[in-house]
Amino acid sequence: MTSALVTAAQPVTTHGFLSSSGVEIAFLLVGLVTLGAAVVTVTTRQLVHAALWLVVALGGLAVEYLLLTAEFIAWVQVLIYVGSVVVLLLFGLMLTKAPIGRSPDANVPNRLPALGVAAAAAAALVWVVADAFRTTWIDLDGAPQGTTKVSGEILFRHWVLPFEALSVLLLAALVGAVVLSRLRNQQEQQEQGQQEEEQS
């Protein structure tokens, strides 16, 4: 009887308002690193450094997914974001001849409105979220929520049609990027040909 009472009362008593379990401490520390890296990403004047700090922010988010037991999404995050998106961004920076050192014109001259909008949005969002989910806890015990097995089953049982539509979208994006890059070359060649004809 008493043991049943104790186990029934267990979920209530184990949750302090800021209960300091190991997962929460790890989440908080990684979250601070992630947020700091994100802030440096949007404020640094060195363009390449911004891309590299973005790697830290996205990697920190992958660790947060791992702490939330969503393993598959964590590895997808590492593969796609850290692996390919940041590389694409670095290529973009280099192809647009980004200066390696400090670039004084990385930001708009008057940043106060942007700062005001961001601060107001942050205050409103944090206030609403904190008010709404003050007494909500995620139960991380038990089986992990996002192992590769679980993700594969739900993705190919319940979400097959959106998945296939997504593959069509990716193909369309690929073709679109190729077309965007090729059109200009043909135009340039035509223009060069016209110029040569005019000169001759």
């Binding site: 949750h15 308002f17 800021l18 209960s19 379990s21 997962v23 929460e24 989440f27 908080l28 979250g31 992630t34 947020l35 947060e64 702490l67 939330l68 942050a122 969002l125 944090v126 979220v129 904190a130 989910f133 003050r134 909500t136 806890w137 995620i138 991380l140």
Partner: peptide, 11 residues
């Protein structure tokens, strides 16, 4: 884990 940690971090 408290839901506030990921929610506030995301915000």
């Amino acid at each position: 884990m408290h839901l506030l940690y990921p929610a506030v971090l995301a915000a």
